[in-house]
């Protein structure tokens, strides 16, 4: 395929740790194949060569936290054929969305001597809160195999296969002993979307929700089960408020506990 006919790929960054775009460079076995199949037109972390848009596929990392971000994401949307938001920041506002539960002015004066220099929004929000997103890839960080699946599928014009079931299902497939029922270890596996391959339970650790809420789960029931392990309410609020704190289901679960709404 000549350069001119190759699909153009762009990678954009908003407020984030760079880990999700790094996942692309971490595909060591496939990287040269991928960059052979596309024209990498905008990927500042990897290249100083920039080609003008429009771009066939845009991968967007990070959350929206400034007025300028809002303008920039609209421009990215305008320049992009398919827009894929990648990672917990882009899909749910990320860990920096913890400000959404607090007073950002107080945060600013905690960290900075001159809060007046700071310009930031009161909230950190995902990309879909601002523009139309064609596909979301969850995770903190995303799973690089899922990223490859998405890029490969989009290049061949088929729908990417990204499962949306809970981590629990994955654990059963792997034959893991249940850390929650057998060891009494708090685990968000029953309500968290898969994508990691049930990584934490495979390391004798409870899932801590990197991939955000799965569809159709019963969070109230998990909250009760977590209480039964001896967890206090403040710890319960903390487990729902980490990397996907602003995702609607985890946000509601945290607020319900904070308001004393779940008893048993």
């Amino acid at each position: 395929m000549s350069e001119a006919t190759k699909p153009k790929l762009a990678v954009w960054k908003f407020s984030s740790c760079d880990g999700c775009q790094l996942s692309l460079l971490d595909c060591e076995d496939e990287l040269l194949q991928v960059v052979g199949a596309v024209e990498v037109s905008y990927f500042l972390e990897a290249s100083s060569a920039i080609a003008e848009g429009p771009y066939d596929v845009s991968l967007v990392e990070g959350s929206i936290t400034t007025e300028h971000d809002i303008e920039r994401i609209k421009e990215v949307r305008r320049l992009s054929g398919i827009l894929v938001s990648i990672g917990a920041c882009a899909t749910a506002g990320g860990i920096q969305a913890l400000r959404n539960f607090a007073d950002v002015r107080e945060y600013t004066s905690t960290v900075y001597a001159h809060p007046e220099f700071i310009s930031t929004l009161k909230t950190s929000t995902g990309i879909a809160d601002h523009v139309k997103v064609d596909l979301e890839l969850r995770g903190c960080p995303i799973d690089r195999h899922q990223l490859l699946e998405v890029v490969t599928a989009l290049l061949s014009g088929r729908k990417p296969r990204v499962p949306t079931h809970a981590v629990c299902v994955e654990c059963k497939k792997r034959g893991n002993v249940c850390v929650l029922t057998e060891h009494g270890t708090p685990c968000l596996g029953p309500v968290t979307q898969t994508g990691c391959g049930a990584l934490c339970p495979s390391f004798n650790r409870g899932c801590y929700g990197c991939f955000g809420p799965a569809e159709n789960t019963n969070i109230d029931s998990l909250t009760s089960a977590l209480r039964a392990t001896g967890m206090q309410d403040r710890d319960l609020v903390r487990v729902f408020r980490t990397f996907n704190a602003w995702s609607p289901a985890f946000r509601a679960a945290g607020e319900k506990v904070a308001a004393g709404g779940v008893t048993q």
Binding site: S15, S16, C17, D18, G19, C20, Q21, L22, T65, T66, D69, G94, I95, Q96, L98, R99, A102, V104, E106, Y107, T108, T110, V111, Y112, I118, T120, S124, C140, P141, Y208, D235, R238, T242, F243
Partner: peptide
């Protein structure tokens, strides 16, 4: 790079959490 306020939201978290939370400051050197 916009501020992310790690030092502010760490206040009130549990002492067991910084290894997971502060890893998210940097995807290159977590």
């Amino acid at each position: 790079e916009p501020p992310r306020f790690f030092e502010a939201f760490l206040v009130g978290r549990s002492y067991t959490e910084p290894p997971d939370i502060t890893a998210r400051i940097c995807g290159i050197c977590p």
